[in-house]
Design a binder for these strands. Structure first.
Lengths: 252, 252
DNA sequence: TTGAGTTATAGACCGTCGGTCGGTATAATA
DNA sequence: TATTATACCGACCGACGGTCTATAACTCAA
């Protein structure tokens, strides 16, 4: 085979790109290393020059995800006009409302990430993301406590709860998508709407705020998400083995 | 090899016993089928007579775990003298306080279950357990709402939160054990104690109860757990590949 | 310009894995 | 006893993640 040499940074990113596409499409376990290197057009030797193991590839991928997620909320973190409550609300809202219009792909990705075969992948990403977000949330809450907005004796604990709620929401959303008929869907939507309200109030009370202070999404936003996705033909009860997603960009 | 025939129920349980021991010791992925059948003293053919795949074995194991967990709280569920708050508190307490004295093994098991290589195994067990416990919690909360003890508009959501908190507690406990020095340990214990208090208050407020109604464990119980475990020589910074645990009983 | 040293690539090869298969010994049934 | 169903055996298979040796392509000092 002709020997093709690329800049190491490019190669590495390419490997991550194709690994991401394959891991998401088939799951970490079922996507073989040979699949990955074949997709990336690279030999075994080259792969192991960049990554110590398949596991290390997964780890690197998770870190890249977490980095991207953090970059996505950087504007909110840097905004000097936001008070702690505003910043917290903005963060919570960002991870949902915004994505409806701006990034239909993002939803497909999340749904994919919640499929059973992606458990390991998801866990790694979540771990890496938590490590990034936890100190940020803690700092926001601590500031809120200092200026008297929030009341709690355990900012770290509250930060954990916030992240738990965030994940749990995505979890129930994902489960709702799994449901079949439109009637099911309607029930699921109502349950979800209720759940979001519950999380809002729970956070209010945990932080010692009056009910209604925390806003995760406007009433009706869940329905907006679901119907938006419903009309998207790309993701349905697709039975194709390789669900089209995360199209690896070609970098030449 | 001589052909040994046992009653199918016995054989199946034996396979589950040895699989449990090996999965917990090495992790689901790293414990090979050959390991399992060697430990169980059974041929490949025999194994596939009982389980369709390694995956199916995992599933069956998770179900058995969940069944046992449910059996462990049956007395509380059947007690007619408990009101909803009492029953909820009893359930929360059962999953911790009791285990300190009665079942030192139970803690070792939980710690093992939280190790990274047991992610898949843990997830399955958790899934199965949730399926069993969710409706029970929902029913308790619903009764509490009816008789005016609790106030919430989403019993299912609250039930989920309760289970989340339960898991999160175990999670932080497990992480605390991972820490090294006794000084670290002391910091971890305090953080944990605070966390438990937070979860209690959070549940109080979510359920519309006065602060202090929900009791997950007495103040100081975390320290009791940790020191109890500390003095147990079986589990330390053990470097042995096969951590001794879940000794497969021999059924002849 | 060359050649020594380093880095990036290639691909044959290896042990182990989960799983299959044809067959056999025992138990149940008639 | 003959027949069928069940429990069991172990050689075998393709695919997997990972290792190894070789070498092409770059780097840079002399």
């Amino acid at each position: 085979m002709p020997r093709i040499i690329k800049h190491p940074d490019i190669r590495r990113e390419e490997l991550l790109d194709h690994a991401q596409a394959l891991f998401l499409a088939r799951g970490y376990d079922k996507a073989s290393l040979n699949d990955v290197i074949a997709a990336a057009g690279v030999s075994k030797g080259a792969f192991y020059h960049y990554f110590a193991s398949k596991e290390a590839l997964l780890e690197a991928l998770a870190e890249r995800f977490a980095r991207q997620a953090l970059a996505g909320v950087q504007k909110i973190l840097d905004d000097p006009d936001l008070d702690p409550l505003g910043r917290l609300n903005a963060l919570l809202a960002q991870s949902r409302q915004a994505k409806i219009e701006t990034a239909p792909e993002a939803w497909a990705l999340f749904e994919t990430l919640f499929r059973a075969e992606n458990l390991v992948l998801f866990h790694r990403i979540n771990l890496a993301a938590s490590k990034s977000f936890s100190p940020i949330l803690v700092e926001i809450i601590r500031q809120g406590v200092e200026d008297g907005t929030f009341r709690t004796f355990d900012p770290e604990g509250v930060a954990d709860i916030v992240m738990q709620f965030g994940l749990a929401t995505h979890d129930v959303v994902a489960k709702a998508f799994a449901g079949g008929s439109d009637a099911d869907m309607d029930v699921a939507i109502e349950a979800l709407e209720r759940r979001v309200r519950l999380y809002e109030i729970a956070l209010d009370r945990i932080l010692g705020l009056p009910d209604g202070s925390i806003r995760i999404g406007e009433p009706g936003y869940v329905r907006a998400v679901m119907t938006a996705r419903r009309s998207n033909p790309a993701v349905g009860a697709g039975a194709s083995k390789d669900r089209e997603l995360a199209h690896a960009p070609s970098r030449h």
